[in-house]
Amino acid sequence: MGDLTEDPAFAATTFVVIDFEATTPKGYPAQPIEVAALALRYESGAWAAGRQFSSLIQPPAFAPVTPAVTAQTGLTPEQVSQAPSPAEALGALDRRFAAGKQYLLVAQHAATEANIIYNQREHCPALARIDLLDTVPLARYLVPGLHNYQLDTLLAHFSIKQPADRHRAYADVEVTAQVFIRLVSAADGNPELSDLAALVKIAGRTAKWNLPVQGGLFDI
């Protein structure tokens, strides 16, 4: 392909597409009720899918699954009532990340995932240190002129079939991965996106745990 996929830093990176479904109780941040992830590597001129992960997550008592959440995701209070706790589910995902390897998380509207991960960082410290790529600004740059950059719009633009269980975490991960692959293919022919650093400049989001802490005015 082009310069981007020939960049050694790009080739050395495992891209982990991630998605959460969540419930957002009044007065609290979003609480995850499902997570899914899929590892992608670009090797020998082609994409290779690696390990995948999916788990329901039992929300705290103050964050019940509401009828609105059920209408969107299909998940019911009964389904999550016996699910693993956030510590169990996110801890299991966290152990998938090997020390010393280079990762980037990929998400559609990555601020949502970044906030959930940061708020759950005690359960997933390795995951919480990984920076993100957001498919929304990347798509805006590479596919200008769409009326919006929601996932459904990008699926239609790239002729990617809507999954039957859209708004479940793993279904959304699979189609987001397809969108990301299409976007990388478009970027590969763009001389302004010749390496991973250029991609990150356009679509990167620093993990909140990696941001510098601003000390108070009178801190000693």
Rank of each mutant, 00 (worst) to 15 (best):
P8H: 10
V17D: 01
G27F: 07
P29S: 04
E34M: 04
A37R: 06
L38Y: 01
A39Q: 12
Y42V: 04
Y42H: 15
E43A: 11
S44K: 13
S44V: 07
G45C: 10
R51K: 13
S55Q: 10
Q58W: 01
P60W: 02
A68P: 00
G74E: 11
L75N: 08
T76Q: 09
E78M: 09
S81D: 15
A83C: 04
P86G: 02
A87V: 03
D94N: 14
A99I: 03
K101D: 12
Q102W: 10
Q102I: 13
L105S: 00
A114K: 10
Y118T: 02
Q120C: 15
Q120F: 00
R121I: 06
P125K: 11
A126L: 12
A126W: 09
R129G: 12
T135K: 07
R140P: 00
L142Q: 04
V143Q: 02
P144Y: 05
G145P: 14
H147C: 00
N148G: 07
Y149P: 11
D172G: 08
D172I: 06
V175L: 05
V175A: 03
V179R: 08
D188P: 12
D188L: 09
D188R: 07
L196T: 13
A198P: 12
L199R: 05
R205K: 15
R205P: 00
K208L: 15
N210V: 11
